[in-house]
């Protein structure tokens, strides 16, 4: 309290107000910067091709419905609703696998004493930063051998082994799961799998929620691997479809309103979900940081 009295002089207070005003100004600028692409995208998706070619717009137009129907029903290169379904399927299955098996692995290493425990943990820590791209050559050859090219197996199955999600789960379990709970379950005659599924998993809900979302978004946005694996346009996920639009724009043959609408459709599900659960995400990122 004595500290505050020293600093509560008139000059200090005035200065604080000044700096605060500057800080809010800066925050407003940054907020605008972060929102600007999305706002522009939404505005442009409401204009017709002719109106977009004619000049820059600050206000929305009236062609939202028209652009939507055109983007939704266009089958010339690919179909957007199909892409959304494909992306949804791949992202949903892989995020469930990632979260469940990362929790399971972390639980296994945390709860049980076994010879290779230390080795297993250090191994995962070491492989955590290996980029997936560097094993792409062998990965593609493997999928060819397994007859998994142009299928979703190669995108979904590897999700079971996600080192960084494991690491997050391990940190969370360490800080929030007392071993006594597991002991108690054993005394009650619960077998090990049941203990994990019925007692441990519910305790991990906050961490699972964060990782489910992150894994979903990562998979939804993934471009490199799907572009290598999926060759037929029926199986394409959204990022591949969006990348194909570039060819069209280069030759200036596409309908701009439709292009903007397609981009909007590819990101809007994630944006909507994000604004509902953003609190957990921001906290989740910070949590990972403190531990990291």
């Amino acid at each position: 309290m004595a500290v505050n009295k020293l600093t509560e002089t008139k000059g200090y207070k005035a200065k604080t107000i000044g700096i605060r005003a500057l800080a809010y100004l800066f925050l407003a600028f940054v907020t605008l910067l972060a929102l600007f692409p999305l706002i522009l995208l939404i505005i442009n998706s409401t204009h017709t091709h002719t109106s977009l070619s004619a000049g820059f717009h600050i206000l929305p137009g009236a062609a939202f419905g028209k652009n939507f129907l055109k983007a939704w029903n266009d089958t010339s290169m690919f179909t957007i609703p199909r892409g959304m379904l494909n992306s949804l399927f791949v992202a949903a299955t892989s995020c469930i696998l990632t979260s469940y098996f990362s929790a399971m692995t972390a639980y296994g290493i945390h709860v049980y004493e076994f010879k290779l425990k230390k080795f297993a943990f250090n191994f995962i820590l070491i492989i955590m930063t290996i980029p997936t791209q560097v094993s792409a050559v062998g990965f593609i050859q493997l999928l060819r051998k397994f007859n998994m090219m142009n299928t979703y197996w190669g995108l979904i199955l590897p999700a079971i082994a996600a080192p960084s999600v494991f690491f997050y789960m391990k940190q969370y379990i360490e800080s929030s799961m007392p071993l006594e709970v597991i002991e108690a379950a054993r005394v009650d005659g619960s077998n090990e799998f049941r203990t994990f599924n019925a007692i441990a998993l519910p305790m991990l809900k906050p961490a699972l929620a964060v990782q489910l979302i992150f894994a979903f978004v990562a998979s939804w946005n993934n471009f490199f691997t799907p572009a290598m694996v999926l060759s037929s346009s029926k199986r394409w996920t959204l990022p591949i479809m969006i990348s194909v639009l570039r060819t069209n724009l280069q030759s200036q043959t596409g309908d701009l309103g439709e292009v903007y609408m397609m981009i909007l459709l590819s990101i809007i599900p994630v944006v909507i979900v994000y604004f509902f659960i953003s609190k957990h995400i921001v906290q989740g990122v910070a949590l990972g940081a403190v531990k990291g």
Binding site: V30, T31, L35, N221, F223, P239, I242, I267, V271
Partner: peptide, 13 residues
């Protein structure tokens, strides 16, 4: 919330 949002938007988009 607003500042973190661009991180979740598809890089391709």
């Amino acid at each position: 919330t607003v500042m973190y949002m661009p991180n979740l938007i598809m890089a391709a988009a």
